[in-house]
């Protein structure tokens, strides 16, 4: 944390997701399935100054570590985010998220006639066409899926 003033305290153990594009902190919480009644201490910082992004959001969650699936989902909705794993008030792992070349199984192809939606064995697969704004292409039918649609699916899909 390089900011001069901290809005919230540091956490002892858990995850800090920093550099979230401004306005997407709630979406990140949604992706993580955090509704507020799980008992985690959660801090949400929204629209603060960022040298890198201009404005950014931050999410801090005491007592929770992200699994791989959660990390991939966050990559899609907040590709600029950094994930810091905190133990005993110290950052023990600093992960810069990177969009994978291929996104498997997380999203549904918007094309209802795509084989990925019509065979019990098929798993959806998308390749990145562009990162900003995000644009993906189905590996099977080559239909585009836009950032808006990715956001919609991810927010809709969560539990």
């Amino acid at each position: 944390m390089k900011e001069k003033t901290l809005i919230v305290n540091r956490i002892r153990e858990g995850t800090v997701i920093d550099h979230i594009p401004a306005g997407r902190a709630l979406a990140v919480l949604h992706v993580l399935g955090i509704k507020g009644n799980e008992g985690y201490s959660v801090a949400l910082v929204m629209n603060v100054e960022s040298r890198k992004l201009g404005k950014k959001d931050i999410v801090k969650i005491e007592g929770k570590f992200l699994d791989e699936r959660e990390t991939s989902l966050i990559t899609l909705i907040a590709p600029t985010a950094t994930v810091n794993i905190i133990k005993d008030y110290e950052v023990v792992e600093k992960r810069k998220l990177k969009l994978p070349d291929e996104i498997r199984g997380l999203l549904t192809c918007p094309n209802t006639s795509c084989i990925s939606r019509n065979d019990v064995e098929a798993v959806s697969k998308f390749r990145i066409v562009k990162t900003s704004p995000l644009l993906l292409k189905c590996e099977y039918c080559e239909t585009y899926i836009t950032e808006e649609e990715v956001m919609r699916q991810i927010l809709h899909e969560i539990r």
Partner: peptide
């Protein structure tokens, strides 16, 4: 030949 898009790739 198949009615679904992407069937051959699959």
């Amino acid at each position: 030949r198949h009615k679904f898009d992407g069937a051959a790739r699959f």
